[in-house]
Design a protein around this nucleic acid. Sequence first.
DNA 1: TGTCGCCTGTGATTTATGTCACGGGCTGCT
DNA 2: AGCAGCCCGTGACATAAATCACAGGCGACA
Lengths: 211, 211
Amino acid sequence: MNKIENYRHLLRDLEEGLLKELTEKGRILEAKAGQVLLQTGQNIRNTMIVLDGLVKLYRENEEGSEFFMYHLNAGEGCALSLICDRTIKASAVTAKADTDAVLLVVPVEVTENWMRQYRTWYHFVVGTYRKRYEELLETIDHIAFQNMDERLEFYLRRHSKALGTKVLDLTNTQIAQELNSSREVVSRLMKKLSEQGKVRLLKQGIELLKI
Amino acid sequence: MNKIENYRHLLRDLEEGLLKELTEKGRILEAKAGQVLLQTGQNIRNTMIVLDGLVKLYRENEEGSEFFMYHLNAGEGCALSLICDRTIKASAVTAKADTDAVLLVVPVEVTENWMRQYRTWYHFVVGTYRKRYEELLETIDHIAFQNMDERLEFYLRRHSKALGTKVLDLTNTQIAQELNSSREVVSRLMKKLSEQGKVRLLKQGIELLKI
DNA sequence: TGTCGCCTGTGATTTATGTCACGGGCTGCT
DNA sequence: AGCAGCCCGTGACATAAATCACAGGCGACA
């Protein structure tokens, strides 16, 4: 089990030869929820593609706060790890498995060549970069232009969409960290959202209603 | 004048055939300082490379505030306009000539093919995307983790570096808009910086000292 | 049962920032 | 000269958010 073949539907856009190489040269990595996959400052030696589960990307500051950037869902690749040239650069972000996850890992020496060799790989990489760039833009919008209440709503919507569920198993503490805010603030805002009927606060987790 | 040949030193990394195509299929665009080159919502039909002058990229919100993202210097390309696939997407940013500028403009139908055809073009595009992605990350750091005073210093440093001068001809009003703050706040902080000896406030402009 | 470690809620206070309301300077135009 | 349209600085105030201090709930475990 956990062979690449099991995940073909995710890679259906890739041409045959590439799939073959992926199978030969790629390695499957199983990660437990919470496991750190890529750490700030660490060198990037491998291209990573998520095959199953959910990965979260963070930007870290000097004190170690982890600011949430975006999710990687099954079928998506880590933009930073897709393009590395010769000049293998240190990672500027932290990637962490949010659920148990399965990753496809390929050395950058290999994927570098695919870029010219396989048209579909090129499309995959370009599409990934574009998408992540736009996701960063959206993140910037929110921190630059919006107040915490709107940012909180956006955060909840994003998580609901990525996880495909209306019930989020998150603590206020955790949300506060990822928004670079404080628990008390999130607690108060969450109460407001609940009074507005936008969420229901469960003993364990948050149910999104009209949000 | 203003032939592509004059800017060869900027494009020195590109292979011969590509330079030839650039010369044949590219078009020179001269822009006046302040001219808008790419507007939010506008379709991207051309790849743009800055040959001379300085271009500023902004993210706009609904009310029309323009949040400064980063500069494009001579020799640099607009990341968004480099990758467009078939699915020509609307621009999510505004680009504006900060000084008088000269741009090299090539239809995306043409550059799309270069990606596979010319190795040096591929490197150029990938390098551009990487750099812009990292520049966005840096921007996020600052708005997510820092106070206005540090953000202001960063803004000034960035501008000094991009313009290659220690004297910036900017008004407080303009700075406030680009940081999405207010004139009064910038005014007070600028006074503080001047008291700390980090800048000198000229009648016309700001001189950076130990910053 | 007690206590530890997690979580939550909430008032009081402080701080950073945005907003309002001034006054005043400089330039260019008529 | 007089006015319009920029720009700047500054005090007073309003607001969002962070911080402090506390109390209490709940599950794990000895």
